[in-house]
């Protein structure tokens, strides 16, 4: 598979350090290492506040990964799109792609 015509558009998550710094921050924020063992603390809607922080960090992690997937992974998409636009496009198992 040849290299893309416009390498400046090429994006790969592994090459972007702050993506991984953000990921580590979200993972660490979701674990209650910062509170003493046995703490329950104030409750919000029936649940301890720390559990909301943990749930919130999980949701934020999902949103963050969705954003990274969408915006920072772009290696050969342009080439494949160009190839797929060629007259001999194929339809596959679910028929949802192959025509671009």
């Amino acid at each position: 598979m040849p290299a893309p015509d416009n390498p400046s558009r090429s994006r790969e998550p592994i090459r972007i350090p702050w993506i991984w710094a953000g990921l580590v921050a979200l993972l660490v924020a979701g674990i209650p290492w910062y509170l003493p063992e046995g703490t329950i603390g104030p409750t919000v809607l029936g649940m301890p506040l720390w559990t909301w922080v943990t749930i919130g960090s999980s949701v934020a992690l999902c949103a963050y990964l969705s954003w990274v997937l969408t915006r920072h992974w772009h290696l050969v998409e342009d080439i494949e799109e160009a190839e797929a636009a060629a007259p001999t496009s194929d339809t596959g198992a679910d028929g949802t792609e192959g025509r671009h």
């Binding site: 674990i31 209650p32 290492w33 509170l35 003493p36 063992e37 046995g38 703490t39 329950i40 649940m47 301890p48 720390w50 559990t51």
Partner: peptide, 10 residues
């Protein structure tokens, strides 16, 4: 619903 120990957090 309590915070686990540090070892459990690790």
């Amino acid at each position: 619903m309590a915070v686990p120990s540090l070892t459990e957090s690790i």
